[in-house]
Design a protein around this nucleic acid. Structure first.
Lengths: 277, 277
DNA sequence: TATGTTCTTCTCAGATCGAGATGAACTCAC
DNA sequence: GTGAGTTCATCTCGATCTGAGAAGAACATA
């Protein structure tokens, strides 16, 4: 059995000075999505400090590296994402409102010049949350709010659109666009839409999530059949909602998330003519 | 029209010292895949310097940050991936053997302690290449070779398997496993399999790519029908291969990649019973 | 009570799928 | 050269899945 190489390099480590290299900073940014009033919303903060002070941006900040010894204050990347989300929005992390959010890595953005201060590599995370309370600004944020994605005037290709209603700091418009596309794709073949609902939900509520994220209406009957036919997508609670639809209709049945991690068969978006290309 | 915030922060930048923060290093690692002798291979290098000297690892190295001014020597992340690939393997970058490779970001790995020297954030890239010549070691690499993925004794869950034939340095076994799963998934709904072939290929050659990556045999007749029925997947050259199969059979027709970026309908893997879970 | 809305299930034609069969083209052994 | 075995390309067939619409029951509102 080979010795653990980490105990075999004392001399090397003693002569090693990380400051010999050009400095690089690592940040995390979070694209947090939720459904409010039937529309897709993203969590934004207004920057209180330079650069881009006063502009809206994705919540995020520097990762605590923990120094060369990588001690107890060195934090993992997902932990940094949750911490920034909690700090800048006042949403409590563990057990609280942030307890049930789904978090996954979206991608890493490191083009030189994307931050005027220095070379910054930003690891973006994507969060799916059920309806959360209004955030309270904290940390470096001067303000924080859920903003309807449709109100941002983003087109799918809009990285830097001049006529946009509200431009975002850094390259956050591009990160947000990538996050939205990832969310739309993930709804097709994973049961992640249930992460937008609470613990129990109805099929029409689930359909509303798909319609909000995809931005198009779905055939109610076919959607119902499809969801129930995918094994492990949802499981019945046996109970019935206490109210019908807002404008009438019978009381829908209640379901909770099943144990499937992938949908088989998948729920494909109806209009995908761009992809034939 | 708002002023560009980057010209509005001279005072801030003058007082800003990046070295006030704990140092972090950013590296790129590349999972380069190709098909050799009908089997999936990954490009590995043997490390010539500590840590993990003598062990096999994914090709990769530090990103050139370019200092606080982010001058001309600051390189983008994909450029760093291509440079490391060229340096450590002797494969020429532009126009040469690396000219036709498909490169995409795989994910970022930053768990504290994954590198004993300091806090290292590694951005992993995934490369698909047609059959390339044998690499020549260079840079920090003592050796470089295409290694059959099957010979690594990886199971899909193997992050740190003791009984593995050849253990990889750092957390590269996990990165490789993630890359393999990404490759398998991407063959389903993108025409990326054509990136493993040269400029022209036959349907049976394309089928061999799918079988090598997925590790299972496919129904030749159904595969043929499926590929030709997906719009934009392949387009006929009108020509015919000059040789039939190795053990007989008619000469197959030649095709080249089409202009589709997504496959509709998708080619789904036959055996996916894990995913029902 | 009447009207409109919504949930849930059903029907039906068209598309797609897996599995197998077929005939022609080609290599190799004899 | 002949025959046996292999492979490409296409076709068939029943089972499954899909989109579009219809229908009945349950519910809100006027």
């Amino acid at each position: 059995m080979a010795p653990d190489p980490r105990h075999d390099e004392g001399e090397f480590l003693a002569n090693y000075d990380p400051r010999d290299y050009d400095p690089v900073a690592v940040t995390v940014d979070v694209v947090a999505l939720t459904i409010r009033d039937g529309a897709l919303h993203v969590l934004l903060v207004r920057r209180g400090t330079a650069p881009y002070a006063g502009m809206w941006a994705l919540p995020g900040g520097f990762v605590q590296a923990g120094g060369p010894l990588q001690g107890h204050d060195a934090e993992d990347l997902p932990a940094a994402a949750v911490r920034e989300l909690a700090e800048e929005t006042g949403l409590s992390a563990k057990g609280g409102a942030l307890g049930r959010v789904h978090l996954e890595q979206l991608g890493t953005y490191g083009t030189p010049g994307r931050d005027p201060r220095m070379r910054v590599i930003s690891v973006a995370y994507l969060a799916f949350a059920p309806e959360l309370p209004d955030p309270e600004a904290g940390g470096d944020a001067a303000d924080a709010a859920w903003v309807a994605v449709g109100a941002l005037g983003l087109t799918e290709a809009a990285g830097q659109r001049p006529g946009t209603t509200r431009r975002l700091a850094f390259d956050h418009a591009r990160i947000l666009a990538d996050g939205l596309e990832r969310a739309r794709a993930k709804l097709e073949y994973t049961p992640l839409a249930t992460a937008f609902c609470g613990g129990e939900f109805t099929i029409p509520e689930l359909r509303a999530v798909y319609e909000a994220v995809w931005g198009e209406e779905l055939h109610a009957g076919n959607f119902h059949r499809k969801v129930l036919s995918v094994p492990g997508f949802v499981e019945s609670t046996g109970a019935t909602s206490d109210r019908g639809g807002r404008r009438g209709g019978p009381r829908p049945r209640l379901y909770r998330p099943g144990d499937a991690r992938l949908l088989h068969p998948a729920l494909l978006r109806p209009s995908r003519e761009e992809e034939i290309r």
